[in-house]
């Protein structure tokens, strides 16, 4: 199963084995990562699973839908060009090794 890495704002990182094509958000909440709140449970409605995607991986992610784009305008931490919502990133085998940085805050 593909594994992905989350990096906390303090630089500490954690590698997580994903299961069954789950989203990056689901992998994070399953492991109890404090940095991913995911208040809406993955319905692209709350913008509290915000991540910064490692530059090298950005172009390899699925394209952003309009609703995700609009939600990212309302994130608690600054929106950057590499901002995404982790609930909208399903982990396929091609994304094995993906690196995501968590923002300082989600609300």
């Amino acid at each position: 199963m593909p594994a992905i890495t989350f990096i906390h704002p303090d630089g500490k990182s954690i590698r997580i084995e994903t299961v069954g094509g789950e989203s990056a958000m689901r992998a994070a909440t399953r492991h109890g990562l404090d940095g991913i709140l995911a208040e809406c449970g993955g319905n692209a409605m709350c913008a509290t699973c915000h991540v910064y995607v490692d530059e090298a991986w950005l172009v390899r992610l699925p394209a952003m839908a309009d609703d995700e784009d609009a939600l990212l305008d309302g994130t608690a931490a600054e929106r950057l060009p590499n901002s995404r919502l982790s609930c909208q990133i399903d982990i396929t085998p091609e994304l094995d090794g993906l690196v995501l940085r968590m923002p300082e805050r989600q609300v």
């Binding site: 909440t29 995911a38 809406c40 449970g41 319905n43």
Partner: peptide, 23 residues
């Protein structure tokens, strides 16, 4: 508690549109 995924606001396309106001 990690409450993510609870269905108090529903889930899916009809999930409470005012959930952010409530929170």
């Amino acid at each position: 508690r990690r409450t993510s995924g609870h269905v108090g606001f529903g889930s899916g396309i009809h999930m409470c549109v005012g959930q952010l106001v409530a929170r």
